[in-house]
């Protein structure tokens, strides 16, 4: 499956990646080649094979419902660009 530049731009937007035209052209090639490999995989007969949710043959361990974390707000907020009244500040979100 060959991608169009428009497909790459849409994927980049969904991932919030800024691509210039040169980069976009390169990704059209790279991603198209990856999708070719996916096409080949799609051709394998998987009738009767359950989808694999995780490559490890193990199951999820559960933790007891207990509060084990203490407040480390000050430490976490030291690397934030802007904070006020304990809140992280981000560029205004407009719905």
């Amino acid at each position: 499956m060959a991608l169009e530049p428009e497909d790459v731009r849409r994927a980049a937007h969904l991932a919030r990646l800024g691509l210039d035209d040169r980069e976009a052209a390169r990704y059209v090639d790279d991603l198209s080649r990856i999708l070719e490999m996916v096409d080949r995989l799609q051709a394998v007969d998987t009738q009767g094979v359950a989808p694999l949710a995780h490559p490890l043959d193990a199951t999820q361990r559960l933790r007891a419902d207990e509060v084990t974390e203490s407040d480390q707000r000050e430490r976490f907020q030291r690397c934030a660009p802007a904070v006020e009244n304990g809140l992280y500040l981000v560029p205004r979100v407009v719905e």
Binding site: R63, D65, E66, V67, T68, E69, D71, R73, F76, Q77, N85, G86, L87, Y88
Partner: peptide
Amino acid sequence: QSKIFSGASTAFGAEPNTQA
């Protein structure tokens, strides 16, 4: 008492970001 994937408290009404 605690969050679905972490041991932080879920108590309502705490100071902002003290339970994150």
